[in-house]
Design a protein around this nucleic acid. Sequence first.
DNA 1: TCAAAAGTGTTTAGCTTACACCCATGC
DNA 2: GCATGGGTGTAAGCTAAACACTTTTGA
Lengths: 228, 228
Amino acid sequence: MPIKQNIRLTVDAVVFGYIPREGIVVLLIKRTIPPFLHSWALPGGFVLDEETLEAAVTRELLTEAGVNINYLEQLYTFGLPGRDPRGRVVSIAYFGLVNPTNFKLAASSDAEDASWFNIKDLPDLAFDHAAIIDIAVQRLRNKIRYEPIGFELLDKKFPIADLEKLYETLLDRSIDRRNFQKKINHLGILIAHNEKQKQVSQGRPAKLFSFDEARYFQLKKDGIAFEI
Amino acid sequence: MPIKQNIRLTVDAVVFGYIPREGIVVLLIKRTIPPFLHSWALPGGFVLDEETLEAAVTRELLTEAGVNINYLEQLYTFGLPGRDPRGRVVSIAYFGLVNPTNFKLAASSDAEDASWFNIKDLPDLAFDHAAIIDIAVQRLRNKIRYEPIGFELLDKKFPIADLEKLYETLLDRSIDRRNFQKKINHLGILIAHNEKQKQVSQGRPAKLFSFDEARYFQLKKDGIAFEI
DNA sequence: TCAAAAGTGTTTAGCTTACACCCATGC
DNA sequence: GCATGGGTGTAAGCTAAACACTTTTGA
């Protein structure tokens, strides 16, 4: 049997949202307990003895920020000695996607504040959370090369331009509108609706689309080679 | 401060090798301690309080199988309650690649045997190690879609046919020899040598190649869209 | 001289890219 | 009626895929 270990286990969640006019945002909470008291940090905390890792993440997201996530995947485990001043703490980071407009953030007893931050404009962060977000951003940017993306991030019904802007934001370059539409149509994941976007700006109102969920998740599972 | 946790932490290594005439093999050890006494299992063990996760994997690989790995990456963390009969044990699995011909496996005090097994013909395994290997095989098969592969698995100098057979094994289908060579040449990662393969079988002896390491690792870093 | 594997090039099809004009709406 | 963004199609270039014959060696 092993010598007694003195290592503790936490989970952290990097939850991304997309706001068409603003860009990619990440959910942060303000800590109410030391260390890093009053610092911004990723939602997360210690794993309970009998709960699954996913349950721990879900629980922390709910209690610290009032957020319920459908899409969560494991990101990476961070375990360098010294990453936590309290001693050896290994953290399993998760990666989530949500539509920020679906939630009213609710800071609870566990956090004095919860807020979305643009990933281009992050505050100083507790622990190694800046590094964790870096890895998560890489994962997000890579994802679009072999998976359809957008379902979890956009409104149920959206104009194609929003999806295109999401890709442009993640790829950090402009995309030809016409070619983009051809490719997306070719994937067959969009359903057109007989509805037009309510005017928010000038110009012709856009048709609204939604994802064909069956096909979307099939492609997500199979993987695609999607080069825009 | 958190309630006292009763969770322990291990690492496990899924180390793959490639044997051109046999296929993809994985390194397993035979356990000398309960639970699963005398079962085949992945090399691995408890993380020491002050060591990094990578150091723990490297140490276990060396002491249990006498193997030294250059290429190791984190695979996934397995944490379901009940996966270990001794109590709550969370295991961080690593993924490694080696050329099996570089090592003489040495079972040490920690393992009564160490051996390569074809991934198509695995014995019963301890814990959830069969599931861990499944995930690792998926990772390996996915890797070839966006990274060059082969450097860690093949001999320093090799005939192109060996590299092609590696791709055929991983993709589980045949590849057109001529188109494959064109693509590999186009990547510019191979250096031709003025040496021929020593005859092992009938037929014209093949030219030997090696990897241009600088270019290989550059492409590995940048990612490629490599569809064969 | 035959069997086995290696070496090499061309044609075709499909996909990707570049590109421009018309339409619907608000001001 | 003009400014703004939306909707749509075609031609050219490039990459991928299919495909066959010749060369070198061992037996």
